[in-house]
Structure formats: C-alpha cells, structure tokens
Design a protein around this nucleic acid. Structure first.
Lengths: 112, 112
DNA sequence: TTAGAATATTCAATAATTCGAATATTATAA
DNA sequence: TTATAATATTCGAATTATTGAATATTCTAA
C-alpha cells in the first residue's frame, strides 16, 4: 500500500488541513456543526470582530471547508462536508489521549 | 449539543492539527502508516535532509503525533494513534471531493 | 436616492513557520 | 580511545499567517 502521492497532492492536503490549525477556525467549525449560520450569528456567539471573522471565513471558503449561501444582505455559511467535523473530532481525541497520558509537552504550546 | 470549549482547548486542538498543515509531515505520516520506521529509513524514502526530517519529527513528537523508540544509535518512530491516519484520510477525502466538484480555489494554493 | 445594516477586502505590523547550514550529542565498531 | 554513523539541536534568513484598523461593497427599508 501507501501509494506514492505527488508533492502536489501533499501540498493541497496540507493546505486544507491548515484550516484546522487555528483556534478561531476550529471554533467556527464547532459552531457550524449543527447547520448553517449567518455571519451575524457567528459574531454573536464567538468573541471575534466582524472583520476577523470574515477573514477566517474567506480562508475557509477558498479552501473548500465551508460554502456560502447569500440571501439579501446576509451570508449563511455551512460546512462543505460532514467529514470535516469527523476529522476534527478524531484529532481532538488524539489530543485528549495525550493529555490523559500526561504528555508534558502540551502545557507550553503556542498560545494566542 | 456543541458544549462550550475553552479557549485553552481550542488552542491545544489547533496546535495538534497544525502538525497536519505541512506537506512533509503529511508524507511522514503516510510513511509511518504501516508501522515504525527509523530516521534513516525515512530519509531514504523521502526526499528530505536529515536535519529537516529531524526538525519535523521533533515537532510531531512534542505534539504527541508520533512516539520514538530508541535502539542504540537508531530512533524508530511510529504514529501515536491510528486516529491520526483516519483524520488525515478524511481531510484528503474532503480535498478530493473539492477537486472533483471543480473548486477553482485549489489551483493557486500556497506552494513550497 | 439615501441611510444604515451586513459582509468583505485591503493594508501594514507583528508573530510564527520553514529550512539550510553548522554543530552537537550519542552509540558503536575498530 | 577514537573515528564514524545516526540523530538532534541551534541559529538566522526567508516566507507565511494573523489581526486590527480602515475602507469598500451590497442590499434594503424608508
């Protein structure tokens, strides 16, 4: 197994995984778990500026993690695939396993 | 649902997901799918310098994605959990779905 | 039409990643 | 012991990500 994958694919794969590499974007994904939300709704539940939220949504849109539905002045975002939540959940499980097994490492991680 | 998660957890979650946000590290994960490999074996199959490989392995070790077994002068790395491969595979599926549905976006992604 | 609401974009400063080069550490065979 | 192999670390430069601030765009109600 382990088919050889081109550098290209790895780069794209990394690019889409990178969406998950930010706390705010993970929170957005969490919020969208149940279904679509407007930008206004997202700003209300998350402690984030409208501009910054819009920037993150832009990244997520461009990398195919969310899709938008525009309705008048409002934009409604939803996750592009249920697989995204599953992937996030798996990685969170890995994290929790690490925390339980007392991985010292995770204490002093990059904060923001 | 959607339990409120602390900023802390989101930061740690992002930190562990960030390991997936690099093409070389994804390739390392691919290589380790079948089981442990030594650093030498990894340098042989991947086109990467020993130093750079070691740097990536260090990141992965510290974030609990891989574990090391040292045997003499050799270090054998393996994935810390099978969930890592599953998460990667899911994200790759999302990518492939996007590519199929002709997401223009992915053409001009950050390359390295 | 125009004011205001909703959202998006641009810009610039700061922070974080990536990687080559050099060097350090550790283990073992001679 | 010492040379060599295997691996790890440090440092600095280049690139990329993140975010606040300012501004632009789009829509709708009046």
């Amino acid at each position: 197994m382990t088919l050889p994958k081109s550098k290209q694919i790895y780069a794209l794969h990394a690019s889409i995984c990178q969406v998950l590499a930010n706390p705010k974007r993970l929170e957005i994904i969490d919020q969208l778990q149940e279904g679509e939300l407007s930008v206004t709704q997202l700003t209300e539940t998350m402690k984030i500026s409208q501009a910054n939220l819009s920037q993150h949504l832009s990244v997520m849109r461009h990398r195919g993690i969310v899709t938008v539905r525009r309705d008048g002045a409002n934009s409604y975002y939803r996750l592009a695939s249920p697989k995204i939540v599953r992937a996030c959940a798996l990685m969170r499980e890995v994290l929790l396993e690490n925390l339980e097994s007392g991985a010292e490492i995770l204490r002093n991680q990059t904060k923001q």
